[in-house]
Amino acid sequence: MLTKRIIPCLDIKDGRTVKGIRFENIRDAGDPVELAKWYAGQGADELVFLDITATNEERKTFAELVRDIARHIDIPFTVGGGISSVADVEVLLQAGADKVSINSAAIRHPQLVEDLAKRFGSQCVTVAIDTKHTDATGWKVYTRAGTVETEHATVDWSKRVVDLGAGEILLTSMNNDGTKAGFALDITGEVARAVTVPVVASGGAGNKQHFADVFLQAQADAALAASLFHFRELEIPDLKHFLKNQGVDVRI
């Protein structure tokens, strides 16, 4: 049975993980490689590394880090943040990333999704969608780190990027992100039912039940969280045993 995936997300700035992580048994929790190895050992199914730096110079550092991560961990990982061209993606995949995640660039230039799928295959193209609901607009897609509303309705945009060749959707609800009140079950479920590719739910995880809900009620294929894992408010082995008892297929 294909299992539901649990994915910790690590934000990277200047080659270091950010968000004050507290781990007593890791030599250097600011070292993305050390932290990644620890998560792999804990049973994380995949990892996501987001480059939150901006300049081209820093991006070169990120590619070196990707190579270092690939050298040391034996589970798949996705990298994202500021990717805007086929050339950017080539560098990251050659460094050993399994998938890339593109966000604003797909909005600016949807053709990029198609170009990437043709060149590298859909299996390595994740399109990240930041979405926000207001009563006036319904669920809309936002861009530029969630600061700018686009004209795209979220379900329509999801279908469009899949038609263009996306192999996975990473859906973040801005309404839920940081609330620890649970994932956005409604829009996650709508997108998961509307597209033929896997959907990763992101934003709002606060406890184990939230993961069970997003898998069982919203049919997400994977769920992503950051601070919840980084601050060890939730341990992956505990989470997976809970999910298994709830009837969710997980890799233990």
Binding site: M1, L2, T3, K4, R5, D45, E46, S122, Q123, G167, E168, T196, V197, P198, D221, A222, R251
Partner: peptide
């Protein structure tokens, strides 16, 4: 089911 078949299977 979703295609690609993506993730951990037995």
């Amino acid at each position: 089911l979703k295609v690609p078949h993506m993730g951990w299977n037995q």
